[in-house]
């Protein structure tokens, strides 16, 4: 997957989200480029150099040039280490460098640049970076340049993301499902239809990529795959269907509420031992028959 992302050259846009961070994939791509022998320039605005280099082995780190815009981007610290020409000036300087070999330029992140600089200036610089021949006076032609841009999608409106997309050759939208990261890749080859590809992957601690199958298709629609597999009619404590004998037995049964002539006779005929009876009641002398106040005799 990494090879195909780097195959086209030009600008590769990595669109990530809070839940699915794209820096891991960016570092995996950087490692890949460095191992192919390319010089890697990293414009770091969001993490420190120490944190960015963590996890790379010395061979990769030696090919990596880090431009630290993290420590003091607005020169509040007044240490004098900041780049006076600003982040875009740094990018132009990378553009004009002497080394003619293939190179990779990583922007960590494009979102930081877009929040602090006008969109047009950023887009022009990106275009100049990915099409190096736009500097006619430059005497050192560069064979191929990869520009990797990390974009935090939630921070920008759809218009800006659309503008950036139109500049890219390869676009990666990071997402995931059930703890599994996925990358939807859109390739824009010149004079061809754009092609889509979806990969499921995880990034190992040494920033190599582990391609995976991805969750099964049906589970992408049902969050819990087990519910559809269990037959609800097994292990029931009652029958759902009746056999022929059982049905006959059921039909022949007279239910208690069914009134038949037979039953009527039983009810009308007086029972043999039954005699008519009366209740005699003689009120006691102290009985209180007054219904108004039943507790009157308690003398409270």
């Amino acid at each position: 997957m990494l090879d195909s992302l780097l195959a086209l050259g030009g600008l590769v846009l990595l669109r990530d989200s809070v839940e699915w961070e794209g820096r891991g994939l960016l570092k995996a791509l950087i490692k890949k480029s460095a191992l192919r022998g390319e010089q890697v320039h990293v414009l770091g605005c969001e993490v420190s150099e120490e944190e960015f280099r963590e996890g790379f082995d010395s061979c990769v780190n030696s090919r990596l040039i880090y431009y630290d815009l993290f420590r003091d981007p607005l020169s509040w610290s007044k240490t004098g280490e900041a780049f006076p020409e600003g982040p875009l000036g740094v990018l132009r300087a990378i553009c004009r460098r002497a080394d003619p070999g293939p190179a990779t330029i990583a922007l960590d992140s494009l979102s930081w640049l877009l929040l602090h600089l006008p969109c047009t200036a950023v887009c022009q610089t990106l275009h100049a970076l990915s099409h190096q021949n736009s500097y006619p006076g430059d005497s050192s032609p560069v064979k191929q340049v990869h520009v990797l841009g990390l974009l935090h999608e939630e921070l920008h409106g759809p218009g800006l993301v659309g503008v950036l997309s139109s500049l890219t050759q390869t676009e990666v939208i990071l997402g995931g499902l059930m703890g599994q990261a996925s990358a939807h890749v859109l390739f824009r080859k010149p004079q061809q239809r754009p092609t889509y590809q979806t990969s499921w992957f995880s990034i190992l601690p040494d920033f190599s990529l582990d391609l995976q199958e991805g969750p099964p298709l049906e589970s992408q629609h049902h969050p819990d795959p087990h519910t559809s597999l269990v037959d609800p009619t097994t292990h029931l404590t009652f029958n759902l269907h009746l056999s022929k004998e059982e049905r006959e037995a059921k039909d022949s049964l007279i239910l208690p509420f069914q009134f038949s002539s037979e039953k009527q006779q039983v009810l009308l005929r007086p029972a043999p031992g039954q005699a008519t009876s009366h209740i005699f009641y003689e009120p006691d002398a102290y009985d209180d028959l007054d219904q108004e106040d039943p507790d009157d005799d308690l003398d409270i």
Binding site: S109, S111, L115
Partner: peptide, 15 residues
């Protein structure tokens, strides 16, 4: 507020 919240979420280690 959305930009602030999302921007900080991208910077943070734990949310």
């Amino acid at each position: 507020n959305d930009i602030l919240l999302n921007g900080l979420s991208h910077q943070s280690h734990l949310i």
